[in-house]
Write a protein that binds this DNA or RNA. Structure first.
Length: 1057
RNA sequence: GGGCUUAUAGCUCAGAAGGUUAGAGCGCGCGCCUGAUAAGCGCGAGGUCCCUGGUUCGAUUCCAGGUAAGCCCA
C-alpha cells in the first residue's frame, strides 16, 4: 500500500515536510558520505556578501549550482561544495560609514580605526541568517557549516602566501594608478560608485596653440576640457594613421587633423577644398606618424626633469570626432596619459595635491587654488599670451562624488600592482581550455578582456580588507613581503600571539630590517577584495598550510557559475591567480548567468520598487515551482524578465500534471490492491502504449543526460516537461480503463508496472530540478514497497537508458497517429457533433502505404479517441480537398536554378488533378515552362492539399481526415447511453460519493428513446456507474435531478448502497 | 566612444545546415471532453521573423550597414 495522496495540500507546505525529513535523516550528509571514495566533482562557490538580503538573482545562481551538484552526485561523484562568504571591501565600509554618519577619512580616523573595523565585522554578517534560510528553503545543498570566510586569519594567510608567490616571481611592484578621486572625502572611488554619480555639466572647451620648436610661427592646435591639467602637460599625442594638415589661418600656421577642420572652422570647407574659406589655406599634408618626435615649447614652467618631454607621441586612443586630433598629455591625470607616459618614459608632473589644490611650488597666480577655480585664470593667462585659439563650453557627462557631490578628479595615486601582463599569454592559453556556457564568452567578452589585459592595481587606500603584507624600511627603503603568520612572528618585533590580520592591528607590527639596522613599517594599504575571492581555489582550504591532499584533488575546479558581470571580476581573478600560482586554469566549466529584469523589463532596483522578494514565492508557490520556472523559462545566459505568472504556470502545467498522474496512480493502485512489483510482465509482452511510453522514457533519459553533461540546464527540464505532458495526456488518458475496473490479469499488471516504472524514473530524472516533489514521489512509490532502497531520491542512482527499450519507429508512428487524431478532433468540432456520440466511419486520404500501415497498427487509438466505428482509406483526394502541385524547391533548386520559378508558375496554372493522375500513372509528369518541356518525377513534386468548403473535413498539407456524420438508430442509442453514463457520473461526483461506492439508480423518463437506450445498453450503463440495483422509485435519501439527455427529459436519482 | 549579446504573435520563448503553409505555452473569444486534475482537447483571432542594402533561382535564416535594448569597459 502506498500512502494516500491527499487532494488537500499546497506544494509549499509539503516542501517544508520534505526539508524536515532531510534534516532529520541527514540526507545531504549521506549523499556526500556514500560517494566518499567516488571520483570527485569540484564545485567552487563564488562567495556572496551577506551584508544585504538575497534577491531573486541569487536564487537563480544558487539553483543552477544546485542542479549541477545534485546531478553529479546522482551520477556517482563526490561533489565538493564548500560555501563561502565575501567580507572585505568598500561596500562594507560605506554601509558602516552611513550608519555612523561618517563622511570622510578624518572623521573615520577620529572615530577610531579599531572601532570602525569592529563595526565592519558586524555588518558583514548582518544578513547571514537570511542567506542561510533562503539557501536551505530553495533546496541548495552546500556546506554552510564549513564555509570559507575571507576575513578569517586562515584565509588571509593563504592570500598572503599567494602574494608572496607573486613577489618572489618579481610580479609585485609599486607604481601609479589613475583613479577617480574625491579630494574632499580624500579617497578614491570604485567604479560602481563612480557610476552612481554621473551628471551633465558644462566644462570649458578650449583649443590652445602649442608653439613648435624650429618651425617659426607654426603651432600644434590642441584641445582640452580640463585647462587645470595644462601646467602638468608633458607631451601631445596624435593618431599615427590619421591625416593631418598644416593650414594657414589669419597669418599663422596651425597643425590639426584633416577631419577636424570642420570641428574648428565649420562645415563649409571640405578637406580637398584648398582655400575654400577666406583666410584658410592648406599648405601641407602629413600622416600622424610624420609628426611624432616634433618638439614644442612648454606652455608653463613645469620644473626641471631628467626625462625628455614636450614632444609629439603616437596614441591609439586619439579620435577625430571631437577636438583637433591632437591630445594633450598629463600623465598624472588620466589613465591613457599615464600609460603613454610609462611607454615613452615621460616625466611624471603632479602639480596638484591630494586636497585638489595646486601645490605652493607653482609660481603662477593659481598656486594654492582649487583646480576647478583655477580654470578661468589659466584660460585668461593663455589668452593674454596669444596662445588661446578658441574657448567655448562643452556639455558632457562627468562623474561626481555620490556622497558629497563634488566633481571627481582623475588622479594618479601610488599603488601596488601585479604584473599580470607578464602572464597574459598563459592566461589566454588557459582560457582556451575552459568550457564556457554560452560559448561566445570565451573568445568574446572574456577573451577580448584578456587580450587587453593591463596590470592589476591591487592596493586600496582604505581600512577594511586584507592588509597588504609589504613592509618598507624607514631608513634604507628595503621592501619585504610577508608570506605567512609564522614568518611574521619570526621577523616582527612585536607580534602578539593571537594577532588578527587586519588593520589597525597590523599597522602596529614593525619588522627589523635585514639590510640595515632600521625599522620596517607596513605599507598602509589594504588589497582589492577581488583578489581575496580570486584566491578561493587555494585559500578555501587554507592551502598550503593545511589540506594539501584536498587542494590537490580540488584544483582546478570542475564547475563554477556566476553572473556575467563577473567576467572582469571573479572569473578573471580566479584565472589570474591560478595562472600565476600553478600555470593551470582554475576551473574547467563556467556557466555565465545573465541578469534578471523585473516584470516591467527594467533592472530590478529598490529605488524603482520593482524588486521581487523570493520569500513571497517560496511561501506561496514553493521552491520547486520557482526552480522549475527558472530552469525552463529561458536559458540562464539569456536575459530574462521575471514574471510571477510564469511561476504559476510552472506550478500548474508541470508540477500539477506530474502530481496528478502520481495521485491517480496511488489512488487506483491502493483501491485495486495491485502489487506492482509482483508479476510485472516482460516489456515485450506489454501493450503497445506501454512500450511506447517506455521508449519515450528511455529516449528522454539519454536526452537529459546529454544536456546535463553539456550544462544545458534548460533543455533537460524542458524535455522532462514535454514527457510528463505525454504521460498525462496520452499514456494515462488512453490507458485509464486499464487501471480502473479492468479485470485482473496480465494487461492490468502491465499497465501498473509501466506507470510505476515511469513515475519512479521521472522522479529520479527530475530530482536535480525539483528536489522536493521528486523526493516525495520517490519516497512514497519506492519507500512503501522496498524498505531496503535508498531513503531518498537524492541517494538514488540517476537513471541510465536501456537502449533496447527505445523504438524510434514506434515513437514516430504514435506521433503520426496523434496528428491524424488531432485532425479528426478538428473535423468533429467543425461538424458540431459531440465526441460522446459514436460515428460510423472516418475517411483518411493522402496517406502513404507505410502511413496506412501505421494507422492500422494503432487503429484502436483512432477508434477510441475519435469514437468512430470504422477507418476507411481513400485515394480520391480531389473529392474532399483541393489539390495543388508545387516543385520540391530543395531538390529542384540546385538542379535547375532559375528554372525553378518558371516550373512553379507552370504548375500553379496547370490542371493539378490531371497532372497528378499523370504522375501516378507514369511516375513522372511533364510541364511546359519558359519554352521548354520539363520532366519531373515524384521526388521532385510536392502534392499539397487545402481545405474545400462544405465538408466536415480537416486538411493539412499532405493529408485529410473526413467524418461521416450520418447517424443510424443504433449509433443514436449508443450515444444516448454514453450521455446517460456521463450525467450519472457527474451526479455521483456532485453528491460526494466515493469513487468506489456502489449505488442504487433510478431513471424516470417519458422519452421513448431514453427508455430504449436503458433497455438496450443496460449492462454497460450499470457497470460504468457501479450500479448494483435499479429501483423504480428513489428513497428520500437519494440525490435526484431533472436532466436533459440530448434534449430528452429524464429524472435521475442516485443513492449509495 | 569600444567590446560582447539580444531583436520571431499582446506576453514568455522554440525553430529553420537558405526551400515557398514559421511553431508552442500564456492571455482573449467560441466549442468540447472528463470519477486523476492547481487539469486537458479542438477551433478562431493575432506575424513586414527590427530596418536598409548585398549575395542567391529563392533570405526571416548568410554578409554588410543601421536602429533599439542590455551588460561590461572608457
Amino acid at each position: 500500500m502506498f500512502e494516500e495522496v491527499s487532494p488537500q495540500f499546497t506544494f509549499a507546505e509539503k516542501e517544508k515536510q520534505t526539508l524536515e525529513f532531510w534534516r532529520e535523516n541527514d540526507i545531504f550528509q549521506k549523499s556526500m558520505e556514500m560517494y566518499k571514495d567516488a571520483p570527485p566533482f569540484v564545485f567552487l562557490e563564488g562567495p556572496p556578501f551577506a551584508n544585504a538580503p538575497p534577491g531573486v538573482h541569487h536564487v537563480l545562481a544558487r539553483i543552477m549550482k544546485d542542479a549541477v551538484c545534485r546531478y553529479k552526485t546522482m551520477t556517482g561523484h563526490y561533489v565538493h561544495r564548500k560555501a563561502g562568504w565575501d567580507t572585505h571591501g568598500l561596500p562594507v565600509e560605506y554601509q558602516v560609514e552611513k550608519q555612523l554618519n561618517i563622511t570622510n577619512k578624518a572623521e573615520l580616523e577620529a572615530y577610531g580605526v579599531q572601532n570602525f573595523i569592529e563595526k565592519c565585522k558586524e555588518n558583514v554578517f548582518q544578513y547571514e541568517q537570511d542567506w542561510r534560510q533562503m539557501t536551505e528553503r530553495i533546496g541548495f545543498w552546500v556546506n554552510l557549516d564549513e564555509a570559507y570566510i575571507t576575513l578569517s586569519n586562515d584565509y588571509i594567510e593563504s592570500v598572503w602566501w599567494v602574494l608572496r608567490q607573486a613577489w618572489d616571481k618579481g610580479l609585485l611592484y609599486q607604481g601609479h594608478k589613475v583613479q577617480p578621486y574625491c579630494y574632499r572625502c580624500g579617497t578614491t572611488l570604485a567604479s560602481h560608485e563612480v557610476a552612481l554619480g554621473y551628471q551633465e555639466v558644462a566644462d570649458p572647451s578650449i583649443f590652445v596653440r602649442f608653439p613648435l620648436k624650429n618651425r617659426e610661427n607654426t603651432y600644434l592646435l590642441v584641445w582640452t576640457t580640463t585647462p587645470w591639467t595644462l601646467p602638468s602637460n608633458v607631451a601631445v599625442a596624435v593618431g599615427e594613421d590619421y591625416d593631418y594638415v598644416n593650414v594657414e589661418h589669419n597669418g599663422q600656421n596651425l597643425i590639426l587633423a584633416k577631419e577636424c577642420i570642420s570641428n574648428l572652422f565649420g562645415d563649409e570647407l571640405t578637406p580637398d577644398d584648398k582655400g575654400g574659406i577666406e583666410g584658410l589655406k592648406i599648405v601641407e599634408n602629413y600622416k600622424g606618424s610624420d609628426l611624432c618626435d616634433w618638439e614644442y615649447e612648454p606652455l608653463f614652467d613645469s620644473g626641471q626633469h631628467a626625462e625628455r618631454s614636450h614632444y609629439v607621441v603616437p596614441g591609439d586612443f586619439v579620435t577625430t570626432t571631437e577636438g583637433s586630433g591632437l591630445v594633450h598629455i598629463a600623465p598624472a591625470f588620466g589613465q591613457d596619459d599615464y600609460d603613454i607616459g610609462q611607454k615613452h618614459n615621460l616625466p611624471f608632473v603632479q602639480l596638484v595635491g591630494a586636497d585638489g589644490k595646486f601645490v605652493p611650488e607653482v609660481k603662477d597666480v593659481w598656486a594654492g587654488e582649487y583646480v576647478k577655480d583655477a580654470d578661468p585664470k589659466i584660460i585668461e593667462n593663455l589668452n593674454e599670451r596669444g596662445l588661446l585659439f578658441k574657448a567655448a563650453e562643452y556639455t558632457h557627462q562627468y562623474p561626481f562624488c555620490w556622497r558629497c557631490d563634488n566633481p571627481l578628479l582623475y588622479y594618479a595615486r601610488e599603488s601596488w600592482f601585479i604584473r599580470t601582463t607578464a602572464i597574459r599569454d598563459q592566461m589566454l592559453e588557459h582560457n582556451k581550455e575552459i568550457n564556457w556556457y554560452p560559448e561566445h564568452i570565451k573568445d568574446g567578452r572574456f577573451g577580448n578582456w584578456l587580450e587587453n589585459n593591463i596590470d592589476w592595481g591591487l592596493s586600496r587606500e582604505r581600512y577594511w580588507g586584507t592588509p597588504l603584507p609589504i613592509w618598507i624600511c624607514d631608513d634604507c627603503g628595503h621592501q619585504h613581503c610577508i608570506g605567512s603568520i609564522a614568518e611574521l612572528k619570526e621577523l616582527g618585533t612585536n607580534v602578539p600571539n593571537d594577532i588578527e590580520l587586519h588593520r589597525p592591528y597590523m599597522d602596529d607590527v614593525v619588522l627589523a630590517c635585514e639590510k640595515c639596522s632600521g625599522i620596517m613599517h607596513r605599507v598602509q594599504d589594504v588589497i582589492d577584495c577581488w583578489f581575496d575571492s580570486g584566491c578561493a581555489h587555494t585559500a578555501q582550504w587554507h592551502y598550503p598550510f593545511e589540506n594539501k591532499e584536498l587542494f590537490e584533488q580540488a584544483y582546478p575546479a570542475d564547475f563554477i557559475s556566476e553572473a556575467i558581470d563577473q567576467t572582469r571580476g571573479w572569473f578573471y581573478s580566479l584565472l589570474a591567480t591560478g595562472t600565476l600560482l600553478y600555470d593551470k586554469p582554475a576551473y574547467k566549466n563556467c556557466l555565465c548567468l545573465e541578469l534578471i529584469l523585473a516584470s516591467d523589463g527594467q533592472k530590478m532596483s529598490k529605488s524603482r520598487g520593482n524588486t521581487v522578494d523570493p520569500w513571497t514565492i517560496l511561501n506561496k508557490q514553493g521552491a520547486d515551482a520557482m526552480r522549475w520556472y527558472m530552469f525552463t523559462a529561458s536559458p540562464p545566459w539569456a536575459q530574462r524578465t521575471f514574471k510571477l505568472e510564469g511561476v504559476d504556470e510552472a506550478l500548474k502545467k508541470f508540477m500539477g500534471t506530474l502530481q496528478n498522474v502520481y495521485s491517480f496512480f496511488v489512488m487506483y493502485a491502493n483501491l485495486e490492491q495491485v502489487d506492482v512489483l509482483e508479476d510485472a510482465p516482460p516489456v515485450a509482452e506489454r501493450a503497445i502504449v506501454d512500450r511506447w511510453i517506455l521508449s519515450r522514457l528511455h529516449t528522454l533519459i539519454n536526452k537529459v543526460r546529454d544536456d546535463m553533461e553539456s550544462y544545458h540546464l534548460t533543455n533537460a527540464p524542458r524535455a522532462i516537461e514535454a514527457f510528463v505532458d505525454d504521460l498525462s495526456n496520452w499514456y494515462v488518458r488512453r490507458s485509464r480503463d486499464r487501471f480502473w475496473g479492468a479485470e485482473a490479469g496480465q494487461d492490468k499488471q502491465a499497465a501498473y508496472a509501466t506507470l510505476y516504472e515511469v513515475l519512479v524514473t521521472v522522479a529520479k530524472l527530475a530530482a536535480p530540478f525539483i528536489p522536493f516533489l521528486a523526493d516525495e514521489l520517490y519516497r512514497n512509490l519506492v519507500g512503501s514497497l522496498a524498505p531496503d532502497a535508498p531513503l531518498s531520491v537524492h541517494l538514488a542512482k540517476y537513471p541510465t537508458a536501456d537502449d533496447t527499450q527505445i523504438n524510434a519507429e514506434l515513437e514516430n508512428d504514435m506521433a503520426f497517429t496523434r496528428e491524424v487524431i488531432s485532425m479528426g478532433h478538428a473535423a468533429r468540432n467543425r461538424s458540431g457533433i459531440k465526441t460522446r456520440q459514436p460515428l460510423a466511419e472516418i475517411t483518411l486520404g493522402g496517406l502513404s502505404d507505410a502511413e496506412k500501415e501505421t494507422i492500422n497498427r494503432l487503429s484502436s487509438f483512432v477508434h477510441d479517441e475519435l469514437n468512430v466505428k470504422k477507418i476507411v482509406f481513400t485515394e480520391e483526394l480531389g473529392a474532399f480537398a483541393q489539390v495543388t502541385l508545387k516543385p520540391n524547391f530543395k531538390v529542384l533548386g540546385p538542379k535547375y536554378g532559375k528554372g525553378v520559378q518558371e516550373i512553379a508558375k507552370a504548375l500553379a496554372t496547370a490542371d493539378a488533378t490531371q497532372l497528378k493522375a499523370e504522375l501516378e500513372a507514369d511516375g513522372s509528369l511533364q510541364v511546359e515552362a519558359a519554352g521548354e518541356t520539363w520532366t519531373l518525377d515524384q521526388s521532385e513534386i510536392d502534392v499539397q492539399t487545402q481545405n474545400r468548403e462544405g465538408f466536415f473535413v480537416e486538411v493539412d498539407a499532405k493529408k485529410f481526415v473526413a467524418l461521416s456524420t450520418e447517424l443510424t438508430h443504433e449509433l443514436m442509442l449508443e450515444g444516448m447511453a454514453r450521455e446517460l453514463v456521463n450525467k450519472i457520473q457527474n451526479m455521483r461526483k456532485d453528491a460526494d460519493f466515493n469513487v468506489s461506492d456502489r449505488i442504487k439508480l433510478s431513471v424516470n423518463t417519458s422519452s421513448a428513446l431514453v427508455t430504449e437506450t436503458f433497455e438496450t445498453h443496460r449492462d454497460y450503463i450499470l457497470t460504468e456507474t457501479l450500479t448494483t440495483e435499479v429501483v423504480e422509485s428513489p428513497s428520500e435519501k437519494a440525490f435526484s435531478l431533472d436532466q436533459k439527455l440530448n434534449g430528452e427529459p429524464a429524472t435521475l436519482s442516485v443513492e449509495q448502497v
